[in-house]
Amino acid sequence: MGLNADELNVGDSYSEVIVEDLTRTQIVQYAGASGDYNPVHSDEKFVTEVAGYPTVFAHGMLTMGMTGRMLTNYVGDGRLTYYGVRFVNQVWPGDTLTARAEIAEIREENGQTLVDLAISTTNQDEKFVLTGNATARVE
């Protein structure tokens, strides 16, 4: 079931901790499932000695995927019509991330009630790692 528009207000928000102490193993798991084997995400030797980063870092798409879990838990399964993000800071092993959605607008389009959400995901230092928007169908 989706959300009920009668019970929603602009400014309402929902948040979830989407990962605690992100592991290198989960990053590898995402590489395997998504097919993106860029060594910057799994190869410590390459990423430190060649790419020049302090250690491996998560795929942006892993953060988007985990943030998507918060979204679908909020708006319901199969309810999204749009989901878009910017990756604003890298996500590192050990990070704990919190994803948040806030209702920006409730509107009608082609006889459907839609809710526009502003999304952000922050790390344990309150630094934004992802910002974006989503639109979902509501009752």
Binding site: I18, V19, Q26, Q29, Y30, G32, A33, S34, L62, G65, M66, G68, R69, T72, N73, D77, G78
Partner: peptide
């Protein structure tokens, strides 16, 4: 299933 596991999403859907 594999993809959902990799993003830590255990939603049965």
């Amino acid at each position: 299933l594999m993809f959902a596991r990799s993003i830590g999403d255990s939603n049965p859907i």
